[in-house]
Amino acid sequence: MIINSKNMTHRMLNEKIRSGVRNGDRKIILKNINGQRYIASGLKSEVNIKINGTAGNDLGSFMSGPKITVYGNAQDCIANTMNAGKIVIHGSVGDVLGYGMRGGKVFVRDDAGYRVGIHMKSYKEMIPIIVIGGSVGDFFAEYMAGGIIILLGLDDTKEIVGDFIGTGMHGGTVYIRGNINKNRLGREVDSVEFDDNDKKIVNEYLTEFCRDFNLNQKNLVNQKFTKFKALNSRPYGTIYAY
């Protein structure tokens, strides 16, 4: 199904997408998307959605299952509390990417803004994954409680990450390419050894990332990554008098 989204409100657009899904459409192409918000919000389906244009705020929020590819940039709060599925963005995204994400994957070819992957969670087989090809802003992985974020910083001319990495983090893993100055870190995280198992994990997602964006993975093989974990699963446990 092809939907020409020109002059369409988010409500009309989502109604069309949902009715397409109800009618058994497995592939939906959205044309002329120009900042419409909430695309595929709360959608429970394995549908494949291709978006041409700039996707608006809350793309894929709460969704469970769809595979969304954006040929363009996306705005704020992408993958908000996403449960399952995949979002691939051929461009950059705004702030608060993957807030409270619970599962599925988000791949961003270029940059992301502040507060990427905050409150990400995981339980057993539910492990959300974010891979970002470019750089990110401050408060990266703040309050992170689970999942994996891989930050590649492929544009060497830019600062790869902002300040306060992993403030309040109490679970999950962050991999950043290269070395990171300690003064960038929040108080609750530190770098730990990047071992062979980590290498396997990173390579697995890198292969998928490179395939999705048609990048040459050879340039990334054997690059050095730094792994970050929370120092303590209970960062604020000691500040109270019981």
Binding site: R102, S122, Y123, M126, A145, G146, G171, S233, R234
Partner: peptide, 8 residues
């Protein structure tokens, strides 16, 4: 809650 057990 999908958070580590024992954490706040």
């Amino acid at each position: 809650r999908m958070i580590p057990s024992g954490t706040d």
